[in-house]
């Protein structure tokens, strides 16, 4: 029983990190209809930024976070202006290929700047140890959960109460109407990329504290896609529920099924199996809107 509960708890913690990454993806998709394959790479860059500020420059945690967010803002603005702006109105594949090309360039830049090395900063981030009976909750992931919840709440408030947040929600609804109402759509696009970058970088710093940073960290983006599809691509709430569901399911499946299979490694393909099942039976996800097509 402890084993099962522990699986649930670590699954939940893992799911929150997935959620954080998936939210960045959903925001871009909602506002600018672009599927951002490079979201996992923002996470990887975030991890390296965390290393640079925390270890190389010895900044305190709050200053490192601020510095990383500042870099994320610049990165988001540059990426949107240089690569995605020319893609407005282009077919889906072109936009996706653009984000893939972007991810490859980011990978190259990470190799150039950090040498693609494995960097760790164990024990630099603050930790909270929480033990409930036999259960123990991983301290770094607990931090991850707390930060994720804070970020999600901030984003929800942002979308509900601020002007730019409302503008973003409106753009998601209908670009042309928004334009006629005097809102600059390009600014909204830029804003959505900036937010996605910030969210990704924060996620990267958390993950970096847990397992260190290396280029393959970007693969975590793949799992976030499964979360997004399960939750419905345009629902932030869906991303939260689906993130937790997938985290828990993945852990439970790995815990109980892996020892039965000769080759193991089920945790890695599990999200993809979920993806296929969702796509066949419920393509718009659990909470997504059903798109209506017209000729």
């Amino acid at each position: 029983m402890t084993f099962f509960l522990q699986l649930m708890v670590s699954g939940f913690a893992l799911g929150m990190v997935y959620t954080l990454i998936a939210i960045g993806f959903v925001i871009i998709l909602k506002c600018s209809k672009a599927f951002n394959i490079a979201q996992g790479h923002f996470v990887m860059i975030g991890g390296y930024l965390g290393f640079t500020f925390l270890v190389t420059f010895h900044l305190p945690v709050w200053a490192s976070l601020l510095a990383a967010v500042a870099v994320a803002i610049i990165m988001g603005l540059l990426i949107e202006r240089l690569t995605l702006r020319p893609m407005v109105g282009q077919p889906v594949l072109a936009v996706i290929m653009m984000t893939i090309a972007l991810s490859v360039v980011l990978e190259g830049l990470a190799t150039l700047v950090w040498g693609g090395e494995y960097k760790t900063y164990h024990g630099v981030l603050p930790t909270i140890t929480l033990k409930v009976g036999e259960l123990s909750i991983p301290p770094e992931t607990l931090i991850g959960v707390i930060v994720s919840i804070i970020v999600v709440i901030i984003l929800m408030l942002f979308f509900r109460y601020t002007r730019s947040g409302l503008a973003m929600m409106a753009t998601a609804e209908d670009e042309q109407v928004v334009q006629s109402a005097g809102i600059k759509v390009t600014t909204v696009y830029a804003l959505s990329w900036v937010i996605a970058c910030i969210v990704g970088v924060i996620g990267g710093i958390i993950l970096g504290g847990v397992s260190g940073v290396m280029i393959p960290l970007a693969n975590v983006g793949m799992k976030a896609f499964a979360v997004v599809l399960l939750g419905g691509v345009n629902s932030i709430g869906g991303a939260i529920v689906a993130g937790i569901m997938l985290g828990v399911l993945e852990n439970v499946a790995a815990g109980y099924l892996d020892p039965l299979l000769p080759g193991g490694g089920l945790a890695n393909v599990f999200p993809f199996v979920v993806m296929i099942i969702v796509l066949i039976f419920r393509p718009h996800g659990l909470f997504g809107l059903v798109e209506i097509e017209r000729i």
């Binding site: 913690a13 847990v210 397992s211 290396m214 393959p216 975590v220 799992k223 945790a267």
Partner: peptide
């Protein structure tokens, strides 16, 4: 038996 950890794990291999 056997347990696998991803080559570069993104979460601690608690399970």
């Amino acid at each position: 038996g056997t347990q696998y950890v991803p080559l570069v794990p993104t979460s601690p291999p608690t399970t």
